[in-house]
Design a protein around this nucleic acid. Sequence first.
DNA 1: TCTGGCACTCGCACGCGCAGAGTGCCAGGC
DNA 2: GCCTGGCACTCTGCGCGTGCGAGTGCCAGA
Lengths: 338, 338
Amino acid sequence: MLSERRLQVLRAIVQDYVGTEEPVGSKALTERHSLGVSPATVRNDMAALEEEGFIAQPHTSAGRIPTDKGYRLFVDKLAGVKPMTAPERRAIQNFLEGAVDLDDVVARTVRLLAQLTRQVAVVQYPSLTRSTVRHVELLSLAPARVMLVLITDTGRVEQRMVDCPAPFGEGPLADLRARLNSKVAGRRFSDVPRLVEDLPDAFEAEDRGTVSTVLSTLLETLVEENEERLMIGGTANLTRFGHDFPLVIRPVLEALEEQVVLLKLLGEAKDPGVTVRIGHENAHEGLNSTSVVSVGYGSGGEAVAKLGVVGPTRMDYPGTMGAVRAVARYVGQILAES
Amino acid sequence: MLSERRLQVLRAIVQDYVGTEEPVGSKALTERHSLGVSPATVRNDMAALEEEGFIAQPHTSAGRIPTDKGYRLFVDKLAGVKPMTAPERRAIQNFLEGAVDLDDVVARTVRLLAQLTRQVAVVQYPSLTRSTVRHVELLSLAPARVMLVLITDTGRVEQRMVDCPAPFGEGPLADLRARLNSKVAGRRFSDVPRLVEDLPDAFEAEDRGTVSTVLSTLLETLVEENEERLMIGGTANLTRFGHDFPLVIRPVLEALEEQVVLLKLLGEAKDPGVTVRIGHENAHEGLNSTSVVSVGYGSGGEAVAKLGVVGPTRMDYPGTMGAVRAVARYVGQILAES
DNA sequence: TCTGGCACTCGCACGCGCAGAGTGCCAGGC
DNA sequence: GCCTGGCACTCTGCGCGTGCGAGTGCCAGA
């Protein structure tokens, strides 16, 4: 196992490299951190760290830079989560409280995260399947045309147009609306299919087709929107990625446009706390030189969606993790209130 | 005035430069375009074009590149709009027809535009103020809490939570819903304020406060959402901007995140047809080295919103204009159908 | 186990010269 | 009057060699 001092050396290397963006040498280390030993000793430690794969040199006779494995150790063992200061927390809260609706909450969250971390922010809309139904509304727009509006407890609204196989009167429509709501209001989305199963039986034969059509549209909405939406912001921060960035930035931008990729990325984070995926730990190739810091957020105790940031592996992990955690917490509060 | 041949030379320069991304010289020009004259003659023409400010050389003894003014002349006089081929048109139509709701229409449009033009696509959501009301729905969520749902003829849905000053029964709520819809359904949003003015008078004194609150939330929604939403896509295409791109790309990404800037940009395009703003013609500084090609689209004869692309001034104008125009046309059709 | 010293390696910045592309201009021809 | 071929000139980009400095690895001694 690595000695205490070697871990200190690794921590110092990570911190310096994150700050300067340049390979760090033994002399510079002893000057900037009071390690209490000489550069020569540090050199031996560095050789050992390199042997173990925690650091590497870009080329002989350059300083060392941390590897993905080095960052991993740093995040797991050497660094905590840096909490936000009180003024920062107040600012976050104030900014989020100005939101007028769910879209606005998400939009503000993205901006906030991007600003705080100076990285690319990704916020997932509160998931439908893990939410509960607040209300289902049916509107008759034409004799054989119904609009279905679905409202979740997180304030999300989905609507669909339904073309009915036969004209559908106001009476049966009101009936369906009432029955539907009494069945599903307050229930989780995942329970809905089971709950509405026998609803058509309560209707006259002539309306049964229409009722089934409406219900299947409702179920479709649940499934389709399970493929959830995201909002992204702070892409301008990509320009601070590094010097060589034309090659790096391209796949990142592409990955960011692939919602599926991003959702998978966020979905992989299973821990209750902040999750960090470093470099090659990300399954997607384009993100091999980035790190993803993500966390779940929710209106109650349970996470209904994820949010996070994407940045260079060379990032300020403690600060980023602190910001991500704080934002998630306050977004959860805002959602619970509304 | 410039002679016919000089215009030909300018056209050839623009075409070559757009293709190769490199300054074009007199010799290359005569080889690739059958101008029927020698390089020396072309050189004289180029000198004249430079004198007039249509082209410039990056440095002495390099070829010429078009200036913003040169592109302007090219777009206005020398190039038409390249129509899409029949297969392309079919592909566009097929792709857009798969959309399930408005969000999806917009999302697909963005992807389509980005793919067709290989540039950054911007699509504005159909505007509220220029739309008409299809339906207003009021849902009682708690004794003193009402959800307001607004549905437009373009399929857009907006919702707001209303905290009432006093409990509001189902009876008055149904009454308000009916009166409200009979007043505003089918009317333009801009007419709504006038139409609902005297609605509170029809209610009992105890409910009037609540009715006013609901109405003012409705009006607020109209105003706030007048600040309209956008969707952006194809940012990965920014990497094809040029070699020097770190400096160029940054302000562009920043501008793209400022919805206000983009909305203004699209808003400036007043023509009924495709509008092109080249380089410094764009008011926003960050976009001084980009061109914006935009056009209005709408479900009926009238434009309800804009869409367009942002790319390097060195772009294929005829092709881009053709793609933008075609996509706008088909999106309009899709919206009219739904 | 740590330290100071020393030789060694390499990347990088700098200066130089050369080749190539492209221009401007001029004198001559149609 | 306009076009053309020829010629001298200018500039950039590239390859090459050199010197410098940062940083390392190793070793002997405390």
